[in-house]
C-alpha cells in the first residue's frame, strides 16, 4: 500500500480539528463526539473503528454537514477541506461539496437507492446535477462508472431497477454514484457490514482498487477489526465519543497501547487460528448522559489508577498517540 507509514505529507486533504458534536437528551446538551481531531493525507485510508454509540458515524455526518437538526449540532471545532472550514459554510456551498468533492456511502444498500428509478438514471443524476452534463453524455459516463465498479453486463442492466440487484451489486451501484464526480474524499460508513463475507471481500478489494485509480482519500468507518486490518493505512480507535488511540495499521495491531484497543483485539475469535482464551471487557459503554468525569474507559479498565479520575489527553509520539494516563508514559507528551 502506498502511503502506509509516511507521516504528514505536505498538506492534509481533510483536517478535523477539535470537533465536538452535541445532542440534546431530555433538555441537556451532551457531546456525542468530543474533541475529535485527525488529518487525512492524500490517497490515505483512515479507519474510524469503535463499537455502536462511540460516535464514529456521527463524526462522518458532521463532516458531511448532515447532523440531524434540531436534536444535534456541531458545538466546537473546525473541519478544513480545500481551504475552507466546512462547519461555517452555508447550506448552498455545502450542497456543492456534498456528493461532489466529498461523497459518502452507507451500510444499507437496500434502502439507500430509490426503488422507483432505474439504476442508470440514479448514477447519471449525480453527473447531471453536479457537473451539468447533458442526458446522453451523463448516461455514457454513468455506464462507464458501472463498468468500473464491475457490475456484470452493465450495459444490459443499465435500465434495471434496484430490486433486481443483490445486496452486493447495490452497494457497487452506491459506490458508482459516490465516485461519479471524482471526489477528493470518500466517507464509507460500514459499507460492507450488511454483506456476506465473500461479497464483503470483493467490495473491499474494489474500494482499495478504486481509491488508487481515483487518487482519493477514504475515511472508512467500521466496528470490525478484521475489516480494518484488511483496508486501512491508519487507524483511529474511538470510545464513548472520543478518539482514544491513533496509529498506523501495522503498529496498532502489533503494539496496541490503549487498554481498550488491546482488550478489543484479544476478545475477537479468529478464523485463522485457535484462540484458547477469549478476553472480555466487563460492563458496558456509558450512556451519553452519564459520562465519567475522568477517563471514559476507566470504569471498565483493568489498569485503572487514581489519576484516571482526571480526563487524559491524547499524547505520545506523532505516529502513535494514545489517550491514557497509564499507557502514555514513555511517549513524549504532545
Amino acid at each position: 500500500m502506498a502511503t502506509a507509514f509516511k507521516v504528514e505529507p505536505a498538506e492534509p486533504v481533510l483536517s478535523v480539528q477539535g470537533l465536538t458534536t452535541s445532542f440534546r437528551v431530555s433538555g441537556d446538551w451532551h457531546a456525542a463526539v468530543r474533541d475529535v481531531s485527525f488529518d487525512l493525507a492524500h490517497n490515505e485510508t483512515l479507519a474510524l473503528v469503535g463499537e455502536s454509540g462511540c460516535g464514529k458515524s456521527m463524526t462522518a455526518l458532521s463532516i458531511m454537514g448532515l447532523v440531524p437538526k434540531p436534536a444535534g449540532r456541531i458545538t466546537a471545532g473546525r473541519i478544513m477541506f480545500e481551504g475552507s472550514d466546512l462547519v461555517s459554510l452555508d447550506r448552498e456551498a455545502m450542497r456543492r461539496i456534498r456528493g461532489n468533492r466529498i461523497s459518502m456511502i452507507f451500510q444499507e444498500p437496500m434502502t439507500s437507492l430509490n426503488p422507483v428509478l432505474t439504476v442508470g438514471f440514479q448514477v447519471a443524476e449525480a453527473l447531471r446535477y453536479h457537473r451539468a452534463m447533458g442526458g446522453a453524455e451523463a448516461d455514457r459516463a454513468a455506464l462507464d462508472l458501472l463498468e468500473q465498479v464491475k457490475i456484470p453486463s452493465a450495459a444490459r442492466r443499465f435500465k434495471d431497477y434496484p430490486h433486481q440487484f443483490s445486496g452486493g451489486m447495490r452497494q457497487r451501484v452506491m459506490i458508482a454514484i459516490a465516485l461519479a464526480c471524482r471526489p477528493q474524499v470518500l466517507l464509507a460508513d460500514e459499507p460492507t457490514t450488511a454483506l456476506d463475507v465473500t461479497i464483503q471481500a470483493e467490495v473491499l478489494a474494489l474500494l482499495a482498487e478504486l481509491k488508487q485509480a481515483y487518487g482519493m482519500s477514504m475515511v472508512f468507518i467500521t466496528h470490525n477489526l478484521g475489516v480494518v486490518a484488511a483496508i486501512a493505512d491508519r487507524v483511529a480507535v474511538m470510545y464513548a465519543g472520543e478518539i482514544v488511540e491513533v496509529a498506523a495499521v501495522r503498529e496498532l495491531f502489533r503494539r496496541p497501547r490503549h487498554p481498550y484497543t488491546e482488550l478489543l483485539l484479544r476478545s475477537i475469535p479468529r478464523v485463522d487460528r485457535h484462540v484458547s482464551h477469549l478476553e472480555t471487557i466487563e460492563g458496558q459503554v456509558p450512556s451519553i448522559a452519564a459520562m465519567p468525569a475522568g477517563c471514559r474507559f476507566a470504569p471498565r479498565c483493568p489498569l485503572r489508577e487514581a489519576r484516571c479520575d482526571a480526563p487524559p489527553p491524547l499524547a505520545g509520539a506523532a505516529h502513535h498517540v494514545v489517550r491514557c494516563w497509564v499507557r502514555s508514559e514513555g511517549g513524549g507528551h504532545g
Binding site: 478489494a205 478484521g226 486490518a229 501495522r250 495491531f253 483485539l265 475477537i268 479468529r270 478464523v271
Partner: peptide, 22 residues
C-alpha cells in the same frame, strides 16, 4: 475461509475471483 477478515494486517484477505451475480 479466505474471505473472512482476520484482525491482522499481515494477513490480507483474498477476494474471490469476481464471479458476477450471486
Amino acid at each position: 475461509r479466505r474471505s473472512s477478515p482476520v484482525p491482522d494486517p499481515e494477513i490480507r484477505i483474498e477476494p474471490a475471483r469476481f464471479g458476477g451475480e450471486v
